[in-house]
Write a protein that binds this DNA or RNA. Structure first.
Lengths: 329, 329
DNA sequence: CTGAAAGCGCTTACAG
DNA sequence: CTGAAAGCGCTTACAG
């Protein structure tokens, strides 16, 4: 019974009007004495207002988060961080999973807009014209995660500079024959920016023509391209656009009896937890997924308050030195 | 503009009352002709009703899902599966993360009850009296995942039999001195059932007094207990209640120069993706997390329809043979 | 500082 | 088969 109480019940028990109880929760004027009375009842009954009944409130105190999958380590970190930040600021996080379905993604956005959420954070594989059309039609603040959104606010991994860092590191360690396993160019962030960074970094050390392979994001893909590279040339280092691709490289190198890093160095991007479990531990560049979630949540709340927000915010990366790269000098 | 339409707007454009539009969405009587008119407008404007405005509806068409963390592979699988099943059945999934905080978990449950969701799925580390008290006070159907809930419906990993399988397997492979890294008994499923299964399985092969250590669920915890076990006795096998604990065991064994499985066998529970990346690949028992989510979602919907549901449903497990257990004979 | 009244976007008996 | 009215649990001007 205690669980189905409404604000009206609380008001009655406290001997005040329900508008006063409402004010109590929303920080309006309430005399200390009245506050105390209300608080007592609230606590006695463990009352929590129904956040979804604020149909005509200025603010719903709800932020929608659209994700392409629930089933990835990166997404898990990003939403954990968003949820934490939002909760601390008394907002409810409404997670909508699009399960890799672009139509569902668009519908999820529409739903959130209709539900009158205060803001939307969206992590997507690609921002299409349909997305932009929706975003332009609404007054609700939108923040795009991990993809560039020219017309609005986005939080980005610093793919180019991370790539460059890795390219330079590999060059500095004295490697000469390098293979690169990248992903397709439809993914601008990883397929283009990250690759360009790597190539420019290598160039600084005089490595002009690395072998370049392309793959999807899978473990199997990493294996396939590693095989192709090894058939073409005896490389002394394989750079992988993601750690998962590096896992594939490990598999093939070990199957072919090549030692890491004595025979071939391997380096990845991602900093997955798993990477430190490998033997030898994978050297990798870790992107700050928690930071991305945090910045996204912080930005949307700032926008709500009318504060200025940079249109393009870069998230830090961190070099994780494993034991998979050999000093060749 | 198109995005902020209400049912009243749709009704006006279609030349009907908003109650008719409502009936259209909820499957009430509407003449074919009227239906067609409404449908046309809906499609033209991509209208989606506000699911959270159904304040006095019999059904909200929302199921709450309370999870202890967003940041685990198992949880990711479970909620992916729940979300998929629910979406196919036109329900909205409302995910509430408790971030390993028991008070927040209780408050999340209270919130969901207050928000009048149709049902609640809860995955928790432990079902306390506080939980049961809340569950008993409400009429809302509750399904508990991965923990036994005597007073109601629960979906369970078959912890006892999985444990027994592993205990017998270890015995069958000829091990004599066994260490077991378990978790605390507050977690009845893993801390008690799984452990008891393991011990009974070992017993069948005459292994009566394994060294038993207890840990939290962390990588570090696994390392700590492994060290303790190795200091006490020279074991030939370490059984770990979760794969993560096994990762910790690997770390320590490798640091101490002990070879897996030549010197010490290791076996875990979980079947994480990472486990097959280890060297040697971890032998482990995999629980069907997708199955658990599916069964949970299916059960709650059945309960809503008044259909019978078994109070205790077991999810399958699968033996994943890696290379971390040696035949000692 | 507080209450009565109207309203948010929807659903539901109840007439017709 | 359809509409007018009341209501869900809240919030918000507006008086006082």
């Amino acid at each position: 019974m205690a669980e189905k109480m409404t604000m009206a019940d609380i008001a009655e028990m406290a001997g005040v009007a329900k508008s006063t109880v409402s004010r109590y929760f929303n920080g309006g004027y309430v005399k200390e004495e009245t506050k105390a009375k209300i608080q007592k009842i609230i606590e006695e009954y463990n009352y929590v207002p129904n956040a979804f009944a604020r149909l005509n409130a200025k603010e719903m105190k709800v932020i929608g988060v659209v994700v392409p999958t629930l089933n990835s380590k990166i997404t898990s970190r990003v939403i954990t961080s968003i949820d934490r930040y939002l909760r601390e600021n008394d907002y409810t996080t409404l997670i909508m999973n699009s399960d890799h379905d672009i139509d569902l993604e668009l519908e999820n956005i529409r739903r959130l807009i209709r539900q009158n959420v205060d803001g939307i954070l969206i992590s997507s594989i690609a921002i299409t014209k349909d997305h932009k059309e929706l975003f332009q039609k609404t007054k609700i603040p939108i923040v795009v995660l991990a993809q560039e959104y020219e017309e609005g606010v986005s939080i980005l991994d610093d793919d180019y500079n991370a790539g460059k860092f890795v390219g330079e590191y590999v060059g500095k360690m004295g490697h000469r024959k390098v293979g690169y396993i990248g992903v397709y160019e439809t993914d601008t962030a990883v397929g283009v920016k990250r690759r360009d960074g790597v190539l420019d970094g290598l160039k600084k050390y005089g490595i002009m023509n690395p072998l370049i392979g392309k793959s999807d994001y899978s473990f199997i893909g990493g294996q396939k391209v590693t095989k192709e590279i090894l058939e073409q040339e005896k490389v002394d280092c394989i750079i992988c656009a993601t750690d998962r691709l590096a896992f594939g490289a490990y598999k093939i190198l070990q199957m072919q009896g090549l030692r890491i890093p004595e025979d071939v160095s391997v380096i990845g991007f991602g900093g997955y937890d798993e990477s430190s479990l490998l033997t030898p531990e994978l050297t990798t560049l870790k992107f700050d997924s928690y930071g991305m979630g945090y910045l996204g949540a912080e930005s949307i709340l700032k926008m709500l308050k009318g504060e200025a927000v940079s249109k393009k915010q870069m998230v830090e990366y961190e070099f994780i030195q494993g034991k998979s790269v050999k000093e060749q000098n």
